[in-house]
Amino acid sequence: MNYYELKFKLEDEQDYRQDLLINELAGIGFDTFEEIEKGFSAFISESAYNAELLESVLQSYREMFVFSYEQIFIPQKNWNEVWESNFEPLEIKGQVYIRATFHEPKNTFPYEIVIDPKMAFGTGHHQTTTLMMEWLLETDLSNKKVLDMGCGTAILGILASKLGAAEIDAIDYDDVCYLSARENAELNKIQNLVAYCGSKEVIPNKLYDIILANINRNILLDQISRYSEVLTKGGLLFLSGFYEEDINVLVDECKMSNLEYVHHKKLNEWVAVKLVKL
């Protein structure tokens, strides 16, 4: 299958609005995104590419922030080989070893996660995923009910299961991520993870002890009140996908839903925040 790659360069590479643009691009058929210096690359199949639709999306964002892009045509190639060349094993705090199916296992780590990323987010290499995994390693998950929002490959839900969680519900609006979550759970022999395709509207009406939401600032602001509704008193909420300067606005929104800030971690410009339900 032929693809187009659009390389976006931003005047301010820390502008959170790039996440909004990425979400918009995903909505019109772009199925893979990669971080590059001062921006990101977005990929779309030739059959799904619509130049007029793309321009209509980009026009509104040109009024919000400064960016440029370069369009590159990519002839058909073996995308599995592309993933293999780009996906290196990852180690988290000497405790978690994340690898793909084509990497050799390492039995020296307490927890090993095998991920077949395909076109889904969440190989652990992004700073926000690393931060969320660090929080999980510091949290007692024994017999806990966990909700993993914006689950991507379900890497966080899989780790939660390996750390002793009793039940994990993993939700992503992208059907590629939904299918990837199911496949990766099976690949890691995780039997207590249920994947759902959708957004906050498909969150089951039950209580969770821990909620993980690694998405972006604006989506989090829209969904925080729903998280609070399904989080048990004393339960923990972990948020990531944003920058340090975004913490205050998110914490203020959380306060209105009886969620109290505890602490946050930072890696480069990204952060992950821990909150508790009062």
Rank of each mutant, 00 (worst) to 15 (best):
H126A: 04
V194M: 12
L275E: 11
G241Y: 03
L137F: 04
I113Y: 05
V66P: 00
Y208H: 11
G198L: 01
D169I: 09
A166D: 14
E24Y: 02
A170M: 05
F40D: 02
Y69N: 03
V176R: 13
D246G: 08
K266A: 12
M64I: 14
C197H: 12
Q191A: 05
V176A: 02
L54K: 08
I203L: 13
A195W: 00
R217C: 08
V194K: 15
E229D: 15
L259P: 13
K189T: 12
G157C: 07
T139C: 02
V66L: 09
E34C: 04
A42Q: 02
I247C: 10
G164Y: 02
I155Y: 03
I210V: 15
L236V: 11
P110L: 06
E81L: 13
P204I: 05
Q95S: 13
S47M: 06
N258M: 12
T108H: 12
H103E: 10
L159I: 05
R62L: 03
G124K: 07
L159F: 02
Q76M: 07
L6F: 01
Y3G: 04
Q76I: 03
T101H: 06
E24C: 02
E88V: 09
G94V: 12
F102Q: 09
E11S: 11
E167D: 12
Y16I: 10
G164S: 01
H126W: 03
S228C: 10
F102E: 08
D148P: 11
H125V: 07
E81W: 00
F121W: 01
K77I: 07
L221C: 05
Q191H: 09
F43H: 06
A154Q: 08
L25T: 02
Q191Y: 02
E201G: 10
V251A: 12
Q14R: 14
W270A: 10
V276P: 08
F40I: 07
P117V: 02
G150F: 03
E186T: 14
I113N: 07
N258L: 13
E167V: 04
I28W: 03
W79G: 00
D12P: 04
V249T: 15
I224D: 09
L236S: 15
S225C: 13
F40S: 09
T108Y: 11
I92T: 10
N214D: 13
Y49K: 06
L267A: 14
